[in-house]
Amino acid sequence: MSKSYYDPSDLKKFGNITEWNEELGGKFFDYYGKVFEEGALTAREKSLIALAVSHVVKCPYCIDAYTQDGLQRGITKEEMMEAVHAGAAIESGATLVHSVQMMNKYKKLSM
């Protein structure tokens, strides 16, 4: 067993999850594949969204995968970093908007 929780080579084995549940694994990969097809959004736009979300959910496998995917699509490093900032801004905003609750509670309890 690896001494580390994350091993980059595990990404290559992602497809193996179907071995322990073919039906659900299969459905997941079908869904996943369909989501990233060209649609109302381009596959390029979806790749950037995936990259931003990869950072927000802090998935190292996804970051590797979607950085490479972006390079393959000719996405520039400036575009990639802006996408990550968009994700980070939402994540920070999600934290900060809770401070309204803090303010409300503070005011309610204070004389």
Binding site: T42, A43, D69, L71, Q72, R73, G74
Partner: peptide, 18 residues
Amino acid sequence: NPSGAFLPGDQAALESDF
């Protein structure tokens, strides 16, 4: 040609971006 250790993406999509 990709400028690094990655494969080229979809030719038609790249052509349109170029």
